[in-house]
């Protein structure tokens, strides 16, 4: 059975979030994972419109944020990997909550002008990808290629 990855999106205020989500979903799918996305309604609609034909994320793999938290907290579902998008304190709150209710290997994709200080507030173990990116996704793209995909493949082989 394919490993499952969850991308958890916050408020889509910063432009890089949507493109990085589609990019990451594409790479994870190519690596053989089943990819799911949870987010606010606006974040999901942005992704849906960007990926009109559902090449990377089908609408059936999109989950409303509150429902996703509910299913995880009630242990009705869990994932092998979870990527939480963080650019403000609310994102940190979701990251911390996912850590409490899920056994997934956790990645924090931290971006925006406050990225360094937000990363400094994380006092538990998770993979952190930190960039001040707001508009230009390329710094995060490089980190994802270097860290995430290699890490996911390594982890998948060893488990």
């Amino acid at each position: 059975m394919a490993k499952k990855a969850l991308l958890l999106l916050g408020c889509p205020e910063l432009p890089v979030q949507n493109s990085i989500a589609a990019y990451l979903a594409s790479l994870l799918k190519d690596a053989g994972l089943s990819v799911f996305v949870a987010g606010t309604d606006a974040a999901l609609r942005l992704l849906e419109v960007s990926d009109t034909k559902g090449y990377y994320i089908g609408t059936e793999s999109m989950i409303e944020l509150d429902k996703c938290i509910e299913y995880l907290a009630e242990k009705r579902v869990d994932y092998d990997f979870c990527f939480v998008f963080v650019y403000n304190e609310q994102g940190l709150s979701y990251l911390t909550t996912i850590r409490s209710i899920s056994n997934a290997k956790l990645f924090a994709i931290i971006f925006g002008t406050d990225s360094e200080s937000l990363a400094g507030e994380i006092d538990f173990e998770c993979e952190k990808l930190v960039s001040r990116a707001v508009h230009n996704p390329m710094p995060l793209v490089e980190m994802i290629e270097d860290t995430v995909i290699k890490g996911v493949k390594r982890w998948a082989v060893s488990n």
């Binding site: 995880l72 907290a73 709150s93 911390t96 909550t97």
Partner: peptide, 14 residues
């Protein structure tokens, strides 16, 4: 985080 109150699971920093 994740504590259930009413019908919601609380989100937040620990």
């Amino acid at each position: 985080p994740g504590y259930k109150i009413f019908d919601v699971y609380l989100i937040g920093l620990s």
